[in-house]
């Protein structure tokens, strides 16, 4: 379902922070802050996760020269059970808060809702985004951090990162959100939690094609279509799906993936990065900055999310996935 935003809400500021392992990220220099300690000086990983969210929002508010009283809504989510890190960060931020869960697609679903609230006139300024902390997420979805299980080449590394965007009324000097697509939930029968890219690629394909169709656009109308965290193999699958439906090489070159690029070619990270903080920290640092300096004029950001739980996997369920997209332009 495509939603148009005729008032063109703008992304007025961004805040992106990352953990120590993310020093190895090719996007490292675009992050606002990188912390040495994964727990952010807190007692538990989950508290550290919460602290990271607060820090990203604090940086964002500092950049925009505002404080929490100026912000109308905080729209965010993470991957921990019941999203306690985000809930606890919201407690400290003291901003009207709606928690959102679209797994790793939360970075975009939150911006879509922030844009709607802005469009409606209900919000002057809203903070939207998502985050993930490696240790807190891995222990929940897979194995204990120090367990020596062999992960296949298709597995992706959950990033420790948070990315937030301040969505407000249109300002021609900032990137503006023209339209968004709320994705359907797509399930092509993938069962392995170590092959997220393969599970999510059809959802990304579905969302991108339906966005282009409803907007009467073609791929090359965009300078860049960046998916969330399909990873290296997922991106390859997505490109193959477009190639099968007749896309040419120049069209395929428009497609990039944050998860595939995040750690460069470092083999230790297997198929690349994943986690809600992956797309969020790349979209709301690197992409935003590239839009502002005019390198890109029109981009489609597509965050993909795998909607599984450890229990659903153990019960033998397949992995349903979704993807949400926003169309951003810079005048």
């Amino acid at each position: 379902m495509v939603i148009l935003f005729p008032s063109k809400p703008s992304i007025l500021a961004c805040g992106a922070v990352a953990g120590p392992v993310e020093r190895k990220s090719v996007f490292y220099s675009f992050f606002d802050s990188v912390i040495e300690d994964e727990r952010w000086g807190q007692k538990t990983n989950e508290q550290g996760h919460s602290q990271m969210i607060q820090e990203a929002c604090d940086i964002l508010m500092k950049k925009a020269e505002i404080n929490n009283l100026d912000v109308d809504f905080f729209l965010s989510g993470d991957l921990v059970n019941q999203m306690t890190p985000t809930n606890f960060a919201a407690r400290e931020l003291a901003i009207s808060f709606i928690g959102l869960f679209s797994a790793c697609a939360t970075s975009i679903s939150s911006v879509i809702i922030a844009s709607l609230l802005t469009e409606l006139g209900a919000s002057e300024l809203a903070i939207a985004g998502a985050s993930s902390q490696h240790n807190a997420i891995e222990r929940q979805f897979r194995y204990p951090i120090d367990y020596g299980a062999q992960k296949p080449a298709t597995s992706q590394w959950t990033v420790t990162a948070a990315g937030y965007a301040l969505v407000g009324k249109h300002n021609p000097e900032y990137p503006s959100i023209i339209a968004g697509t709320v994705g359907k939930v797509v399930d092509y029968g993938e069962v392995s939690p170590f092959h997220m890219g393969g599970a999510m690629a059809p959802a990304a394909y579905d969302t991108i094609t339906s966005h282009l169709k409803k907007r009467h656009q073609k791929i090359t109308d965009y300078d860049l279509i960046m998916t969330g965290d399909l990873g290296k193999i997922g991106l390859k699958i997505l490109k193959a799906m477009f190639a099968q439906s007749g896309a040419k090489q120049e069209e395929l070159d428009v497609l990039r993936d944050a998860g595939a690029e995040f750690y460069g070619d470092d083999k230790a990270f297997q198929a690349g990065a994943s986690g809600a903080g992956c797309s969020a920290s790349v979209f709301f640092s690197y992409i935003e900055q590239q839009l502002k300096i005019g390198r890109y004029k029109k981009v489609l950001l597509v965050a993909t999310g795998a909607l599984l739980s450890p229990m659903s996997f153990q019960q033998g369920e397949t992995i349903p996935c979704t993807a949400h997209a926003i169309e951003i332009t810079m005048e």
Binding site: T154, Y188, G189, E190, I233, K236, A240, M241, Q244
Partner: peptide
């Protein structure tokens, strides 16, 4: 593309287990 076709494509694109 139906799920079966997709799974074939996915298999082609996924590096084989060494």
């Amino acid at each position: 593309m139906d799920p079966q076709e997709y799974q074939q494509l996915e298999q082609q694109m996924t590096p084989p287990t060494p």
